[in-house]
C-alpha cells in the first residue's frame, strides 16, 4: 500500500475536475463581490454540483443582521442560482457557443431551514426539470458541511448565447 501514490492520485483527480470545469467558471458573468461559486464538483446533462464559502469578511455581515451576522436568504438563493442554474445552463449551451451568454432569473421559489453563519461552506446541487426554448428550470438544494439541508426550492431562468439576439 503506497499512501503517497494514493494521495497523488486523489489530488490528480481533483485537479482533473478543476480543469474540466474551468471553462464554465471562466464564462460566469459574475465577479467579486457578487460571485458565489468557488468550485464545481460535477456538471452533466441532468444537473450541477458545486460549493462556496461565505467568507467572514464579506461586507453584508455588518448589516445583516446588526450585531448578529447571518447570511441573507437572497444570497443563499443567488448562490443556488449561480451554481445550480447558471453553471448548468452554460454547460447545456455547449462549448460551440463560446460567445457571451445572456442570463436572467425568471422565478425562484425557495424554502429555508437552517442559518448559514460567516465562514461556513455550502454545497449546492441541482436537478434539471427542463431546458427548452432557452428556459432552464431546476430543483436546487443546499447543504452545509455537516450534510444538513439549508434550503431547497425551484429556480428558473432564461439563458441564451448573445448572438441569438
Amino acid at each position: 500500500m503506497d499512501n503517497g501514490n494514493d494521495h497523488y492520485r486523489r489530488w490528480g483527480r481533483e485537479f482533473t475536475i478543476i480543469m474540466e470545469y474551468k471553462p464554465i467558471l471562466d464564462r460566469l458573468p459574475y465577479a467579486k463581490p457578487f460571485l458565489f461559486v468557488d468550485q464545481l464538483q460535477q456538471v452533466d446533462e441532468d444537473g450541477a454540483k458545486g460549493s462556496f464559502t461565505f467568507k467572514k469578511e464579506m461586507d453584508f455581515y455588518e448589516g445583516h443582521l446588526k450585531g448578529n451576522p447571518i447570511t441573507p436568504g437572497v444570497l443563499l438563493t443567488e448562490c443556488c442560482a449561480q451554481i445550480g442554474l447558471v453553471c448548468l445552463g452554460l454547460f447545456l449551451l455547449g462549448s460551440e457557443e463560446l460567445k457571451e451568454a445572456k442570463i436572467g432569473m425568471s422565478s425562484a421559489d425557495m424554502e429555508f431551514y437552517l442559518p448559514v453563519y460567516p465562514g461556513e461552506r455550502v454545497w449546492v446541487s441541482s436537478k434539471k426539470i427542463y431546458f427548452r426554448f432557452h428556459k432552464l428550470k431546476c430543483e436546487v438544494k443546499m447543504h452545509n458541511d455537516r450534510g444538513e439541508l439549508v434550503c431547497k426550492g425551484t429556480i428558473a431562468g432564461m439563458i441564451k448565447s448573445s448572438d441569438h439576439g
Binding site: 425568471s106 422565478s107 427542463y130 428556459k135 428558473a156
Partner: peptide, 10 residues
C-alpha cells in the same frame, strides 16, 4: 414574460 410564454408552450 418570455419565461412564462415557455410555460404556456409546455
Amino acid at each position: 414574460n418570455s419565461a412564462n410564454l415557455v410555460d404556456i408552450v409546455l
